[in-house]
Simulated scan of single mutants.
Amino acid sequence: MDIIDEITRAHREVGESGEAKTIRIVRHYDTDVDDLWDACTNAERIPRWFLPISGDLRPGGNYQFQGNAGGEILACEPPRRLRVSWVMGEAPASYVEVLLAAEGDRARLELRHEAVVPPEFWDRYGPGSVGVGWDLGLLGLALHLTGGEKVDEQHFHETPEGREFIIRSSRAWGEAFQAAGATPDQVSATTAATTAFYAPPPQ
């Protein structure tokens, strides 16, 4: 796995929508839109690169990722658009939208996550708190589409490649945060906190 290549394949943006904070990731995959849509929505394929999923997987239905988020399927327009609510524990719902499009012989994926974030949490972790997690998920999708092995979520951060990926992802979200207006001190503090959360120093 080329860590630098995987990081630079994604374009990252940080923004606001009313009171909500938003992150946006765009990256391309060497497949067609139909295959990418199937990988993102087929209950048999999703666990191969992300997490086991259950629920009533149709518009208006609900989904639940094992040990992670769940929510309602708000829009499903094959093979272009998927929008869901995203609920973790007792936290208020946030919203995730995935848009797919063909670009030449590749497929373009755009993911947007919108959430009202407590100010103290945003001040501590910034956009990397959710952005690094999505980078890891989209890395898993890339490996799946190219026939690679699934990332071991529990131990990936303990491997040299995994730790390097997380560090670079956290820095990349820091750069996107600064481009959105954060100060250098904010970027430095949130990047350090996010890195420590996803890849704590070895004991």
Rank of each mutant, 00 (worst) to 15 (best):
M1F: 08
M1E: 15
D2F: 12
D5A: 15
E6Q: 11
I7V: 14
T8P: 03
R9Q: 10
E13T: 07
V14K: 00
V14I: 13
E19Y: 09
K21D: 03
I25V: 15
V33I: 12
V33S: 04
D35L: 05
W37C: 00
D38H: 07
E44S: 15
P47I: 11
R48T: 08
R48E: 13
F50P: 00
P52M: 14
G55R: 04
D56V: 09
N62Q: 12
N62A: 11
G67T: 04
N68W: 11
C76N: 05
E77C: 08
E77N: 09
R81E: 02
S85L: 08
V87W: 03
E90V: 07
A91S: 14
P92E: 04
A93D: 09
Y95N: 08
Y95A: 09
E97G: 02
E97A: 11
V98S: 04
D105P: 00
E110F: 01
E110Q: 09
R112N: 15
R112I: 15
H113D: 09
H113A: 02
P118R: 10
P119M: 11
F121D: 12
F121Y: 11
W122E: 10
R124V: 10
Y125F: 15
Y125G: 02
P127M: 11
G128V: 04
G128W: 02
G133T: 09
L143F: 07
K150Q: 11
F156A: 05
P160T: 13
E161W: 04
E161H: 07
G162W: 00
R163Q: 05
I166P: 03
I167V: 13
S169D: 10
S170A: 15
S170Y: 00
R171N: 13
A172M: 04
W173K: 00
W173M: 03
E175Y: 07
G181K: 15
G181A: 13
T183Y: 10
P184N: 14
P184M: 14
S188C: 12
A189I: 12
T190Q: 14
T190M: 11
T191K: 02
A192K: 05
F197C: 02
Y198L: 01
Y198Q: 01
A199E: 03
A199K: 00
A199L: 07
P200L: 07
P202I: 08
